[in-house]
Structure formats: C-alpha cells, structure tokens
C-alpha cells in the first residue's frame, strides 16, 4: 500500500518549490517524463469492472515499463481523521509489449497522460517521493511530442510513501510532518479534495528565490 497527498502550485512558483525541496531533501532532483496509460476492462470482462495503469518512463535511455494497480482507499472513522490517503497499490516492472498484452486480454485504453517535471526520492524515517509535474493530454493517440497541458500555468505536486498495514501510521506521521514544511508554498491534501493554491505562495516564493532557500519558512 501507499500513503499519498496532492496539491497544486502555480508554475511561476515551481522554481522556489524546487529550491525548498532541494534544501529539505538533501538529494538531487531527478527529471520526470512519464507516459501514463489508463486501461479499463472491456464490457463483459471480470467479476467487477477493473482498471490499471501502464507507465512508460521516457527519461530512461531505454524506456522502461511498469504496471500499477491502485485499490480503493482506506475507509472508516480512523481513515477520516488522518489527512493522508492510505490505499493499496501494487506495481510490477514489465517488458515493453505489456500494453499489447493487456489489449489482448480484453482491456481498452480509457485515457492517456504525459507527466513532465521532476522528482525527489529521499529517506525521512521512511522512504518519501515528491513529484512536481505538469499533466499533459495528447491530441492524437500516443503523440507524446504534441502534448498540451491540462491546466496551463498550474502543476501537480504529489507526495507518496510506500507503507504496509503494520507501519502505515508511522508513514502517515512522517508524510504529514514533511508536508508542514511546504505549507507556505502549497497545501497538500487527500487526492480528490482540492484545496487550491495558498495565498502565501507568492510571498514565500519571493523569499526563497531571494536567498536560495537559506531562510527557514
């Protein structure tokens, strides 16, 4: 399973966010360019309708492929009290013909996206990944070179951390605590609950840009 929160930031403040993340994480950013294909089961296939994502990492010298399945999020009073979404997630690397394979099995392409941006992978008690990316749609099938942003001027920030049913409370705490450091620039919440941009973003960004992230926000 994984713990996840999301937020949005104006593209003009992304550079400031990068400086802040660089200071907080202490690792180099990695460039991100991922072609994401969302597949859904055909009309008669499966006990229930199902959905999976096929990700192609275009940053690698040889594009690498991953199959990802995300399950329904944790529910109940306990889940509502925490500000982080906890959900089952399984990933598997796969060879490059995996898309054709799922088509033959009866899955259909629902939509596709291109995420372009950067990511930080670091250890903060638990393994955390922060991705900052613009989400692009393709006007023609698989035409990643002609992709256009879905929300121009706005980028998606996602903080994720792998967890297990034994340690998720610890992971949730680590993610929550990390997100507090980003609060002046953006607010992170459970996916699907958009809280918009934060009013302090411009001032916080200006401060970060002026001293290269040296100031504690």
């Amino acid at each position: 399973m994984e713990c996840v929160v999301q937020g949005i930031i104006e593209t003009q403040h992304v550079e400031a966010l990068e400086i802040l993340l660089q200071g907080l994480c202490g690792v180099q950013k990695e460039r991100l360019r991922i072609h994401e294909l969302c597949l859904k089961s055909g009309p008669n296939l499966g006990a229930v309708p199902s959905e999976l994502r096929i990700l192609c990492d275009l940053e690698q010298p040889e594009p690498s492929w991953t199959v990802r399945h995300v399950g329904g999020s944790m529910r109940g009073a306990g889940a509502e009290q925490i500000s982080v979404l906890v959900r089952p997630m399984v990933e598997s690397k796969a060879s490059k013909n995996v898309l054709r394979f799922f088509y033959v099995l009866g899955y259909k392409l629902d939509h596709e996206l291109l995420r372009v941006g950067f990511a930080f992978h670091f250890q903060r008690g638990v393994q955390i990944t922060v991705t900052v990316s613009s989400v692009n749609k393709m006007l023609k099938l698989h035409a990643t070179d002609e992709a256009l942003p879905v929300t121009p001027g706005m980028q998606l920030v996602e903080v994720t951390a792998p967890a297990t049913s034994e340690n998720y409370t610890e992971v949730v705490a680590a993610v929550t605590s990390f997100c507090e450091h980003l609060a002046p620039l953006l607010h992170l919440s459970k996916p699907g609950i958009s809280t918009g941009v934060v009013p302090t973003a411009a001032a916080a960004a200006a401060s970060l840009m002026s001293d290269g992230g040296g100031t504690t926000l």
Binding site: V67, H69, S92, N97, V98, F101
Partner: peptide, 11 residues
C-alpha cells in the same frame, strides 16, 4: 511473451 516482477500475480 511478457516478463514482469512476481508482484504482477498480485495485480
């Protein structure tokens, strides 16, 4: 023929 991780069985 597709090569994947063992976790694909879980998927």
């Amino acid at each position: 023929v597709v090569e994947s991780d063992v976790s694909v069985q879980n998927i």
